[in-house]
Amino acid sequence: MSKLLPIEENEQIVGYFFDCPGCGMAHAPYVQPYKNEVGASWTFNGDFDKPTFAPSILAKIERSDGKAMVCHSFVVEGKIQFLGDCTHALAGQTVDIPEQN
């Protein structure tokens, strides 16, 4: 099993999904700008078992109750290092990226 699910566009891999146990969402760091537009992109070490993406991944999610959730992390060698500004229970902790189902 892999920890990443490729995102394809025009038969080319442009990014990868991984499940985040902190916020319960999938994060999708793009290794090329989305739809060839100018935008954020990350470096990827090419290792599907111990992926590393840089720079950090910041997700701000507006919840249905109107509160914002923040998930901010570094992904290094297959582990998610949650930063202190996360608003979920895993803030400040490091966990393995879960395997894709």
Rank of each mutant, 00 (worst) to 15 (best):
L90E: 02
P29V: 00
A68T: 14
C23D: 00
L4Q: 06
T52W: 08
A91W: 02
N36Y: 11
I61W: 07
E11P: 00
G39E: 06
H88N: 10
K3T: 12
E11F: 12
F18G: 01
K79L: 07
A28P: 02
N36K: 14
I80L: 09
L83H: 04
V14P: 01
V38C: 11
G46L: 05
E99R: 14
G78A: 01
E77L: 13
S64F: 09
Q93I: 08
N10F: 05
Q12L: 09
M25Y: 12
K50D: 05
P98V: 03
K3D: 11
P51C: 07
L83V: 03
E62V: 12
A40C: 13
M1Q: 12
V38G: 09
Y30K: 07
V38D: 12
K50E: 10
A40H: 14
T87I: 01
M1N: 14
P21W: 02
D85R: 01
D49H: 10
A28F: 10
G66Y: 07
F74Y: 12
A54L: 15
F18K: 02
Q81P: 09
F17N: 06
A91C: 07
P6W: 08
E37Q: 15
P21Y: 02
Q100V: 07
W42S: 00
I7S: 01
K3R: 15
V31T: 15
D47F: 08
Y30M: 15
Q93R: 11
K79D: 03
A28Y: 02
Q81F: 08
C71P: 02
G24Q: 03
L83M: 13
V76W: 08
V14R: 11
N10S: 13
K79S: 01
E11C: 11
P6Q: 09
Q100D: 01
F17G: 03
Q100C: 10
K3I: 09
